[in-house]
Amino acid sequence: MPGPTRRQALGAAIGVAAGGALIGVTTASADTVPAGTGSEGSAAGLAGTPSSFDEVFEGRRIQGTPAEARASAHAHGHAGHGAGYRVLIDGRELPVMQHGRNGWSSTINHYERFATPLEAARTAVISLKGAVVVPFDPTA
């Protein structure tokens, strides 16, 4: 998209795409929860949901709880990141996501895979070196 209007076009396209995708999420979550996520959903189901944790790691309080994914997601302005597990670092949400049988990642460590959300939370703490996670609009 060359030309002086590309900047606006990109922004508009992102907005359109985000809106369309969100509609898709709502539909999928209502109608096809297992089918919509395919083998991932199956793998997650077979593996079970990771247990809760609440600990202080390197001076930061990290908490993790299995969540009613979509209910929690809508209440907090996030769309759930798929697996319905909520992680907090000092009370602020660290978005985590499950990659089928390949494990978990977070927005702070997006190119790694962790066996559990706890490991993702601890690694995020190590990565941040005192910085805090900041909420963002996932569809912005």
Partner: peptide
């Protein structure tokens, strides 16, 4: 920063939708 935003948004939507 629009490119950074586009990348972050793509990651989030992909993870949320599973697409």
């Amino acid at each position: 920063d629009e490119f950074v935003l586009a990348h972050r948004t793509r990651f989030s939507i992909d993870m949320n939708t599973g697409v």
